[in-house]
Amino acid sequence: MLVQILGAEKCIEVGVFTGYSSLAIALVLPESGRLVACERDMTCLEVAKRYYDRAGVSHKVNVKHGLAADALKSMIQKGETCSYDFAFVDAEKRMYREYFELLLQLVRVGGLIVIDNVLWHGKVANPLINDAKTVSIRNFNRSIMEDKRVSISMVPIGDGMTICRKI
C-alpha cells in the first residue's frame, strides 16, 4: 500500500527471506518499476525467486546476493544516491543503524524507509532484557526518534514497524 500511495518506481529491500514483502512490492510497481532485493542467504533467494517467477514479476526484481551493506555501498558508488523512492528493512537487527545510514543516501527527499521488527516482541520496552539484538534495536529506535533528517511514525502492529519519511 505504501509503495502504491507513494507512486514508487524504484525500491530497495534489505533482507528478502522467503520473498513475501519483496513480492508484494514488485506486484504493485509499474511495469517499468524496479526492486533491488538484497539477501545474504542463497537458500532464501532461491525460494523468493520461485515466487517472483510464479507471479510474473522476475523482470522487476534485481536480486543482490551477499551482504546488504556491501550492495548498498556499491549502489552509492555507482551514483545512485537520491534515486530510490522506497526501502524496506527486515534483516540483521544489529545492522539497522548502518542500513539506515546507507539508505538515507539512496532514498530521495520525500521517499520512505520502513523498518520492521522495531518492537522486537516487546523486548525493547523491558529494561531487564539486554541481549545484543534487543539493545541494538532499542538504541536504533532512540536514534531515529531524534533524527532531524526524517519524520517518523512507529506503527505498533505485529512486531512493530517504523515508517521514516526523508526530509
Rank of each mutant, 00 (worst) to 15 (best):
residue 86 F to Q: 02
residue 57 V to I: 12
residue 36 V to L: 10
residue 59 H to A: 13
residue 52 Y to T: 06
residue 62 N to Q: 15
residue 63 V to W: 01
residue 64 K to D: 02
residue 84 Y to R: 06
residue 40 R to G: 13
residue 69 A to D: 14
residue 40 R to H: 08
residue 36 V to K: 00
residue 47 V to E: 11
residue 88 F to P: 05
residue 43 T to V: 14
residue 77 Q to S: 12
residue 39 E to Y: 03
residue 39 E to K: 03
residue 89 V to C: 07
residue 91 A to D: 05
residue 79 G to H: 01
residue 46 E to F: 03
residue 66 G to I: 11
residue 71 A to M: 03
residue 88 F to W: 13
residue 82 C to A: 15
residue 94 R to P: 01
residue 45 L to Y: 03
residue 78 K to P: 00
residue 77 Q to F: 00
residue 44 C to I: 00
residue 90 D to T: 08
residue 86 F to I: 06
residue 73 K to W: 02
residue 70 D to R: 04
residue 63 V to K: 01
residue 73 K to N: 13
residue 45 L to I: 14
residue 43 T to R: 13
residue 66 G to T: 12
residue 70 D to W: 05
residue 75 M to Q: 11
residue 47 V to G: 01
residue 46 E to S: 13
residue 78 K to D: 15
residue 87 A to L: 00
residue 73 K to C: 08
residue 59 H to E: 15
residue 62 N to C: 10
residue 40 R to D: 05
residue 85 D to Y: 05
residue 51 Y to G: 06
residue 76 I to L: 06
residue 61 V to Y: 04
residue 89 V to G: 06
residue 74 S to Y: 00
residue 70 D to C: 04
residue 68 A to C: 06
residue 92 E to H: 07
residue 59 H to R: 15
residue 62 N to V: 14
residue 86 F to P: 02
residue 72 L to T: 01
residue 64 K to W: 03
residue 45 L to E: 09
residue 57 V to R: 10
residue 41 D to T: 11
residue 85 D to M: 02
residue 40 R to V: 11
residue 52 Y to Q: 08
residue 55 A to S: 12
residue 50 R to W: 06
residue 44 C to H: 09
residue 92 E to T: 08
residue 58 S to A: 15
residue 95 M to C: 07
residue 39 E to H: 05
residue 48 A to R: 03
residue 42 M to N: 10
residue 88 F to D: 07
residue 41 D to G: 07
residue 51 Y to C: 10
residue 86 F to C: 03
residue 63 V to A: 09
residue 62 N to F: 12
residue 88 F to T: 11
residue 47 V to R: 11
residue 93 K to C: 07
residue 92 E to N: 14
residue 50 R to G: 10
residue 80 E to W: 03
residue 41 D to Q: 09
